[in-house]
Design a protein around this nucleic acid. Structure first.
Length: 351
DNA sequence: AAATCGTGGAT
DNA sequence: TATCCAAGATT
């Protein structure tokens, strides 16, 4: 874009934002901690999904100190259903570092803030520009889509190295007087006008400066390579209840998928062995009978894999030594533990 | 660089 | 039903 147009572009964009921006909870604060929480929750997550989580979370943890020393189990319960649970643990680790190393003041420069757990290039720029009015780029999917059209950039936005192209574009265009509004304006424009499909170009405040619109190519951008489809894994899941109504429950490992979340025991279906036998061996219990062999059947789709679950309710007899991270608990107790959505589905069909 | 890491809504 | 995808970060 020619330099004499950049001034009009940023003015029209920010002016549009001032009139049309959405009223969102995190837009009623300038507390860097609260901005931080919102930005982490919003990573790969829709605004409508985040809003109730954000409100509950900040009611529970009003200050950075409240979050820094919260019990991890409680923290994960607050995050339950939001997904990408490492975000919660990284956020707490980052917050704790700010409390202990920076005297509870969130750093106001990219060098320091980028070292915090869970704070990548986008989140760093978002906090710096929105909370501290620093002229820093904050390039997310919206920004890449909008600018790929405005500037007619055809690089594959699925390629990691492409982000730098858009960061440089923002550095050229950004309103240094209102950097937070400018960055949020690009994102709101992407969410409300310059949408992935059927962009509302006739309502766009910057269509005069949009190369793709003026060439009738808005719907052909951005260029994004496709991803592979999910792999399928089949499990037998056991609601294994003892004579006192307590269920076998286990905590997942602290790394990898659904880290530190609790689940009913699940055995990957194997051609060569019975899942019931594996359950008894792995958990050192004895199945004494079936209550419901077809309690529930469903599939749960993650971003990169699909779980096909066949759930059954069985009677079990406890033995002496349970493995680590395995407990027998009542349903009431289990409901206080953080569980992933597929396990909540099973919990919901038990009395 | 490419995989991993959740969930629910839209098309 | 299938696919995409939404304010990404980590490894």
């Amino acid at each position: 874009m020619k330099y004499q147009y950049t001034k009009e572009f940023r003015h029209n964009l920010v002016e549009w934002f001032n009139h049309e921006k959405r009223d969102l909870p995190w837009r009623h604060t300038s507390d860097p901690y609260k901005i931080w929480v919102s930005e982490v929750m919003l990573q790969q997550t829709r605004v409508d999904t985040v809003i109730p989580y954000y409100n509950r979370f900040l009611e529970k943890y009003p200050t950075i100190h409240d979050l820094a020393y919260a019990p991890q189990e409680e923290l994960l319960k607050m995050w339950e259903g939001l997904g990408y649970y490492s975000r919660a643990r990284n956020l707490q680790a980052g917050v704790k570092e700010v409390v202990e190393k920076y005297n509870s003041v969130v750093p106001d420069n990219r060098h320091d803030i980028s070292k915090l757990k869970g704070v990548g290039p986008y989140t760093a720029g978002a906090i710096l520009s929105i909370a501290y009015q620093k002229p820093e780029h904050a390039v997310d999917g919206n920004v890449m889509r909008v600018l790929s059209r405005v500037l007619h950039i055809e690089e594959d936005i699925a390629q990691p190295k492409t982000r730098r192209v858009f960061e440089e574009a923002v550095e050229m265009l950004i309103d240094e007087q209102h950097p937070g509004d400018f960055n949020q304006a690009l994102m709101d424009l992407g969410a409300m006008i310059c949408t992935p499909t059927s962009p509302k170009c006739l309502l766009c405040p910057v269509r005069d400066y949009c190369i793709a619109f003026n060439e009738g190519k808005a719907d052909q951008l951005p260029v994004k390579s496709k991803k592979v489809k999910t792999k399928k894994v089949q499990f037998k899941v056991f609601a294994a209840v003892d004579e006192e109504g307590r269920y076998l429950i286990e905590k997942r490992p602290s790394e990898g998928l659904l880290a530190d979340m609790w689940q009913f025991p699940m055995i990957e279906i194997n051609e060569n062995s019975l899942s019931e036998e594996t359950l008894q061996q792995n958990y050192n219990v004895e199945i004494s009978g079936y209550i419901d062999k077809e309690l529930l059947e469903f599939k749960h789709i993650f971003s990169h894999l699909t779980w096909e679950m066949e759930c059954m309710q069985v009677k079990v007899v406890q033995k002496m030594d349970l493995p680590e991270n395995v407990l027998f608990l009542t349903l009431e107790q289990i409901r206080t533990l953080p569980m992933p959505v597929p396990m909540l589905k099973i919990l919901n069909v038990l009395n």
